[in-house]
Nucleic acid binder design. Structure first.
Lengths: 254, 254
DNA sequence: CGTAGTGTTGACCAAATTCAATATCTGTGG
DNA sequence: CCACAGATATTGAATTTGGTCAACACTACG
């Protein structure tokens, strides 16, 4: 078992609120069955319910929906420390598929155990609720991105957002990051075709804004890129720490 | 004060799980200050935090984001019984604006009170978390809609979804419903221009699928419309009641 | 090697936008 | 009750964006 401090989920929730020793132990308990998963394996299936939630410890994954016409829309990418299938567990239906992109490691969490832990720990529920809210904020930003930005703007904004998320867990910086996504992944996430993704990437490269080659995203001009993409990482910030602190002072902890 | 049974929020949460008398009373307490709001008034402002959540008792509202270039993306429309500003309260920042579309009635809920109620009532937290999850499911569907469907498909799917939601609160049926949205609202929600919205509506009308005129949506051929739009209302269903019960019983296994 | 997945590019096409002009509706004041 | 203004809806023509089809290059890996 890994030391509690290095568990991505603990680190993530810990960024929201200070965790008591008991709470840390509970989170640790959720990681009992951490196991490797090969790339391309489906963890949650659209339309089915396998009653498991996962914590992604290592690797990349994505959530997507397949339309009857065969088109795929990727809703979100998941990086280490992310909770997988949370909504799936709560709604009891799987409205989308979650699939590993790279070889990964996941801890699967039985629903029963999760619900018991949460029902006994209102503070933890609050933290999880907050993590879920942050996820929704990302989906909303994604929606705005697809609905109201040009292809180039979408791409720039998306790669910047991914950079911010990765920086938070120590997997990237303002220079860039390692990124296992194919142009097909990008296309299905951004509502474009793979061919057009290629052209857009070329355009960004030729304009000296960013380079995405050989699995590496390099920000050639971070400032100019942020400007042209209207990128504002506020919605990702953990400014929430302040928020939760406020919340904790107002309501009696349990 | 209205009888608890007729409060939209109570009705909504009650569809998820049976509510105890104490819980009903708590929900009723949240409606202390129900007041009228004129059309076009902003309730929550992008970038500000006014620390209030609302329950929409009557009328229509919408959440949207304005991009620096002036474009607007409507994230969701709200109808009676919807919770407004939930994420806003939890994240302590307002990442989007919520505005009334018609003259409406809202009950504003002070954050402090809401948090106190939730921290003392884990079951209620679960219900709220679930309502929030349903909202996210709608945003996800919206994302898929914009990312991977043609303009006509988007419009059809969107108007069908709205019909399902309204039917749930008794404001519409398979024939159609009264709808105060302008073509600009539709455009900003679907990532189109108002001009193109007009053409798309004409096309749907001329194909005998649906008519949207003078503030009324009429389904001329519900079945054909659902088919062409790949509409599957599963993600809106309240099958959840079963879900929560089942979740308690099931488990481990894979 | 050879194959499958991925990336790259060009020529052509379709969908949606933009610009612009009118029409219609709705509420308001005279 | 009518005239008017502002918002909303409708339509056409020209343009842009992104998609489709097709060919080929590069890379990794058995």
């Amino acid at each position: 078992m890994t030391a509690i401090e290095t568990l991505p989920l603990a680190r993530k929730l810990g960024a929201y609120m200070a965790l008591s020793q008991a709470e840390r132990t509970l989170i640790s308990d959720l990681h009992q069955s951490c196991k490797p998963v090969a790339a391309g394996r489906r963890l949650v299936d659209q339309g089915q319910s396998n009653h498991l939630a996962y914590i992604l410890s290592a690797g990349w994954a994505c959530s997507y929906k397949i339309l009857p016409n065969g088109a795929r829309q990727i809703v979100d990418f998941h990086i280490p420390g992310d909770f997988l299938g949370l909504r799936h567990v709560l709604l009891h239906t799987s409205d989308h598929t979650i699939e590993s992109i790279t070889d990964s490691e996941v801890a699967d969490v039985p629903v029963k155990e999760l619900l018991e832990i949460l029902s006994r720990n209102p503070r933890l529920v609050t933290a999880v609720l907050w993590a879920a809210s942050r996820d929704e904020a990302m989906v909303v930003e994604h929606l705005v991105n697809i609905g109201r930005r040009s292809a180039v703007g979408r791409m720039a904004h998306f790669l910047l957002e991914l950079g911010s998320r990765l920086k938070l867990v120590g997997l990237g910086d303002k220079q860039g990051y390692v990124c296992p996504l194919t142009q097909y992944h990008l296309a299905d996430a951004l509502g474009l075709t793979a061919v057009h993704v290629n052209r857009v990437l070329r355009q960004l490269r030729e304009n000296g804004l960013l380079t995405f080659r050989h699995g590496v995203v390099t920000f050639d001009d971070y400032h100019a890129l942020s400007t042209m993409a209207d990128f504002d990482p506020t919605y990702l910030d953990q400014a929430g720490t302040t928020s939760i602190v406020t919340m904790r002072n107002r309501c009696p902890a349990q």
